[in-house]
Simulated scan of single mutants.
Amino acid sequence: MAFEIVHAAQSDIGRKRLHNEDRYCLDATLGLYLVCDGMGGSNAGEVASALAVEMIHRHINDASQDQDLPLIGPSDPAVSLATNRLASAIRLANEVIYRESLRKSEWTGMGTTVVAALVTDELLSFAHVGDSRLYLVRHHTLQSLTVDHSWVAEQVRTGTMTEEEAERSPRRNIVTRALGVGWQVEVTIGETLLQPGDRVLLCSDGLTKGVRPDAILSALTRIEDMSSLTDGLITMANEAGGEDNTTVIALAVREAGDESLWHRLRQRLAI
């Protein structure tokens, strides 16, 4: 079945931060979508997130032109080559960020989260490190395809803390994994087959800190236009306090030809 992916992205500084340390990539030709949320003093967070986006994009692009490009790190036989390639790209980014953090004292300790998606035909490959998230909406149900690598998420998983307590915890910003903090990083990967009608959302935690999942689901199912959807999600994050930078990438999966049909219908309604 031939798919069309309709997409939009938006990034916003929020209401409390002095600069935006989030970075993203949207390359429809490669089918690559990335959100990175940088951390570190002296603006080093934006350096780390920019390096992550650059290196992941470069590695996926190089692999699209050379199928024999070696993978970085181990290959998981339980998933596809595309999913292993995404993990390989993230490991490369980790190495580069860590090496650069040693080169300048003001970059010491810099790091970034990453959530990445790679669409190959009907397959959605995904990988993440940290607490930026990937959601799938299917049949009006919101499913998180990622599980945060964070201190509070670990407490929830072990039953030490409830979801409500985690949302209020002063330690909710502590991540347990990030790119660039060591020579090696553990990347969580997965994959799923897409279906027409699916919506996919990649976001930094600036959205999920203040906007509840039911409100995110409502926006994803209610707003048809992708640019209006991403604008609306940013507005929701800022109205909830805008404590952090917020970045969102929204994808709508449609059968080939559905988008042009939608435009024709809108034109007829306008007339």
Rank of each mutant, 00 (worst) to 15 (best):
C203D: 05
A256V: 11
L30Q: 08
D76K: 01
N43K: 10
A44C: 03
L92S: 06
E224C: 00
M110Q: 08
L134C: 08
E191H: 11
V119A: 05
M226G: 03
R85L: 13
L26N: 09
T162S: 15
D12Q: 08
L207F: 03
V181T: 15
V200A: 08
A89M: 05
I5Q: 00
N245R: 05
R99H: 06
A215L: 13
E54K: 12
D231Q: 13
R15E: 13
L134F: 05
M110R: 07
A116T: 01
A63I: 00
D214R: 12
Q10V: 02
E167D: 14
D148A: 07
G31K: 05
V248Y: 04
E167R: 15
V47A: 02
R103E: 13
W183G: 04
D244T: 05
A8S: 14
A2W: 03
D22R: 03
S125K: 13
A250Y: 02
V6E: 14
D258N: 09
E46R: 01
M1D: 10
I216R: 04
G111Q: 06
S80Q: 07
E163T: 02
A252V: 03
P77V: 01
M236F: 04
I72E: 15
L229R: 06
H263E: 15
L229E: 03
D37H: 09
L124N: 08
A250P: 05
L32R: 06
A270L: 14
H19A: 12
S132C: 08
D76W: 13
D214H: 12
D225M: 02
T247Y: 04
H128S: 08
A117M: 07
D225H: 11
T108F: 06
V253C: 11
L194N: 04
E164N: 02
L34E: 10
L179K: 09
A87T: 01
S260T: 14
E21W: 00
H263C: 03
G38T: 05
P77M: 01
V175R: 03
Q195Y: 11
S49I: 03
G210C: 10
D258I: 00
L69Y: 03
S260W: 05
S150Q: 07
A87R: 06
W151A: 03
I189S: 07
H128W: 10
A63D: 02
D225F: 01
Y24R: 10
G130Q: 04
D68N: 14
D258H: 10
S218Q: 14
T235V: 14
T230C: 14
P170W: 07
E239V: 01
L179R: 08
G197K: 09
G38R: 03
M55Q: 15
P74M: 13
L265C: 13
W107V: 00
V137I: 12
I249F: 00
G210W: 08
G241T: 07
A166F: 07
F126Y: 15
A9G: 10
T230M: 06
S218F: 05
S42P: 00
G182P: 11
V137K: 02
H7E: 11
S260L: 10
